[in-house]
Amino acid sequence: MSAVRVVMLLAGKDLRIEARGRQTLGLVVVLGILIEVVLALGLGQASSGLRATAILWVTYLFGGVLCFEKTMAVERQHGAMAGLLLAPVDRGLIYLGKLCANLALLGALAAVVTPVGIVFFGFDLSAAPGAFAAVIGLSLVGYAAVGTLFSAVTSASRLQGGLLAMVVFPLSLPLVITSTQVLAGVMDRGEALDMSGLGVIAVFDVIFLTASWSVFELVVEP
C-alpha cells in the first residue's frame, strides 16, 4: 500500500473516532472561547496585530495540547498502538497519520476561535488576511509536529496531564515570537510580509517534521 494511503487511512481513522465521540473538538473550542472571554475582559477591544496574534496563540496552544493528548489517548486505551506498530508499514507513517489528524483538529479549532477573537477584540485582519492565514497555517504545522511527537512520548510514559504543555510550549516559542513579530509588521506598520520571518517558521517546520518522523519509532516502543 502506498505511503499516502496509509497516512490517509490512519488519519481518517482518528477523525472518524473523533466524529463519533465529538469530545475533543467541543472541549477545545469552548475552552478557546473561554480563554478569549477572560482576556477580553482584561484587555478590552483596543488591540494591535501584535496582541491579536498573541491572544490567538494562547487559544491555539492550550487547545492544541488537548487535541494532541486526546488523539494519542485513543491509542493507549486498549493498547491499540501495539497493533499499529505490528502492521507492516513504515512506523514514520503512523506519526504522519497522527499529525494529519491533529492538524485537522487544530484547523477546525482555529476556524472557530479566530473569527470569535476578531469579534471580541475588534481585530482588523483586512490589511492582509492572506499573510495572516499563511503565517498561522505554517506555524500550526510546526506546532503539531512537536506536539504529536511528545504526545506519543508522554502517553507511552503514562504521565499526568499538564506535562505535555510544559514540554511543547517552550519548544514552540520560536513560532509564537516569529508569527507575532511578522504579523505586527504587516498589521500595525503596514509593511510587506517579512519573508525571512516566514522562512524561520518554514525552517522550524522542516526541522521538527524530519526530526520527529525519524525518532518517532524510538519513543513509541511499548
Binding site: M1, V6, Q77, H78, A87
Partner: peptide, 27 residues
C-alpha cells in the same frame, strides 16, 4: 498476528471497521 490481554481495538469504531482497518494496513 498477535492477541494480547489488551484487545488493541478502538472503542468508538465498529467490529468490522476495526478489523478492516488492520486488514488494509496489512495490504
Amino acid at each position: 498476528g498477535m492477541v494480547a490481554h489488551e484487545t488493541m481495538l478502538y472503542d468508538e469504531l465498529t467490529a468490522l471497521e476495526n478489523v478492516t482497518l488492520f486488514a488494509r494496513l496489512h495490504g
